[in-house]
Structures are given as structure tokens and as C-alpha cells.
């Protein structure tokens, strides 16, 4: 469950964003559509606590994030928010499994190998766990990225253009996976995209 009130943000005096209020309940999906330059990524980073809003507030599961201190923010994000990036990036020195466990480690949780294996099996890359991430195809990398976002059973899943680099078939698969996995942990799924293909899949939509 995530909701925002009167969020604004500015990089400088020229570029100022005011975002509409949004609300996404547990086990629900929200699609944020917008063309480039409308602040999609900015909004996502605000939701992910990577940027601090100029004004307004964000509530995740009833916690007002503007009340958190810097160190608390880092911990809160690590435990409650899973981010799927447009292009999945990994720590290259580590193999797939360790990249997944890294999410646990950095959130100061116990490394959950069982969960990593389960996710890998469900997302179909169980055979690649000991491989280096650079050896995987883009689609496989995307799935590992999703698995990583799910490692800590986040309450909110944020996806930044998860499908823009994918063909129609993979686009459908990734969307299915995201929806399915979010449903499994009853997380709120917020997708930011300009990909018009997703329009028909998600009921709840906001345009920037």
C-alpha cells in the first residue's frame, strides 16, 4: 500500500514537477504513463526514496516517509521497496545467486537461499544460479532483476520501464511475472512506463 499527497520536486527553478496524488492498495497494480521528460523517473525515484520531495508526503503502509531520518530511510527502502530497473544491472563480480542474496545482505537480513532458489525456479533461471550475470541474455537478466526486487518480500514493487527493451512476447511474459509475483506477496505494484502496450493490461492508470 503506497499513497502520495501533493508531491512536488524541482531540479532547478526551470524544471519543476508537481505530481498528481496517487494511491495503490496492497495486491493492486497502478500504471503511470507519460512521455519522456514528464518526470516519470523522477516520480519513481521519489517513491523509491532515492530523491527527497520538495514538498508533500509519501506513505508506505501507513508510515510517513518524510518523517524518517537518513539512515532509517536506507533501511526502510531496503526492506520494503523492491525496484525493477529498466535495464537490469548487477554487481559483475558476483554470480546470479550472490546477486540475489546481496539484496538480503544489504538490507541486513539473513541470506535466504531457499527463497532465491524458489524465485529462480518460478522465473525460470534456476539453471543459471552459479553463472555470472553478464553471461545471461537480456530477458534472463530482466527476470533476475525482478527476482532480486522480490528477495526481501517488499511491500511495494516499483518497476521503471520494465518492458521498453523487450519484444511483444517477452513484454507479456514480464508483465505476467510482475503481476503474479506482486500478487504472491500481496505487494503494491507501481509501473512507470511510456510503453503503450501495457495500457490494456492494467485497469488503474495515471497519466503525467
Amino acid at each position: 500500500m503506497i499513497e502520495t499527497h501533493n508531491l512536488t520536486f524541482s531540479y532547478d527553478s526551470q524544471k519543476r514537477f508537481a505530481f498528481p496524488n496517487l494511491r495503490c492498495a496492497d495486491d493492486d497494480t497502478l500504471l503511470i504513463l507519460g512521455q519522456s521528460g514528464r518526470g516519470k523517473t523522477t516520480l519513481l525515484h521519489l517513491l523509491a526514496l532515492l530523491l527527497t520531495p520538495e514538498s508533500g508526503n509519501i506513505l508506505v503502509n501507513g508510515t510517513d516517509l518524510s518523517q524518517l531520518t537518513g539512515a532509517d530511510t536506507v533501511g526502510f527502502r531496503a526492506k520494503n521497496i523492491g525496484i525493477v530497473y529498466q535495464r537490469p544491472h548487477f554487481v559483475h563480480a558476483l554470480n546470479v545467486l550472490d546477486n540475489l542474496l546481496l539484496a538480503n545482505y544489504l538490507a541486513r537480513l539473513k541470506p535466504d537461499r531457499t527463497r532465491a532458489r524458489q524465485l529462480a525456479e518460478r522465473l525460470g533461471f534456476a539453471d543459471y544460479l552459479t553463472k555470472k550475470t553478464t553471461r545471461l541474455s537480456l530477458g534472463e537478466q530482466q527476470r533476475v532483476g525482478i527476482a532480486r526486487a522480490l528477495m526481501n518480500r517488499a511491500r511495494v514493487l516499483l518497476a521503471d520501464e520494465p518492458t521498453s527493451n523487450l519484444d511483444d512476447e517477452n513484454c507479456d511474459r514480464v508483465m505476467d511475472l510482475l503481476a503474479q509475483q506482486a500478487h504472491e506477496v500481496e505487494a503494491s505494484l507501481v509501473i512507470v512506463t511510456h510503453d503503450q502496450r501495457l495500457k490494456n493490461r492494467v485497469a488503474q492508470q495515471i497519466s503525467l
Binding site: 525496484i83 544491472h89 559483475h92 539484496a103
Partner: peptide, 15 residues
């Protein structure tokens, strides 16, 4: 080269 890697780890909760 690893700026992104570092930023990634920071976003995942590393100090």
C-alpha cells in the same frame, strides 16, 4: 565504471 554498481548497492540499502 562501477558507479552504477555502487549506486545500485546504495539503493539496495548499502551505506
Amino acid at each position: 565504471e562501477r558507479r552504477y554498481e555502487m549506486a545500485l548497492m546504495l539503493s539496495m540499502g548499502a551505506t
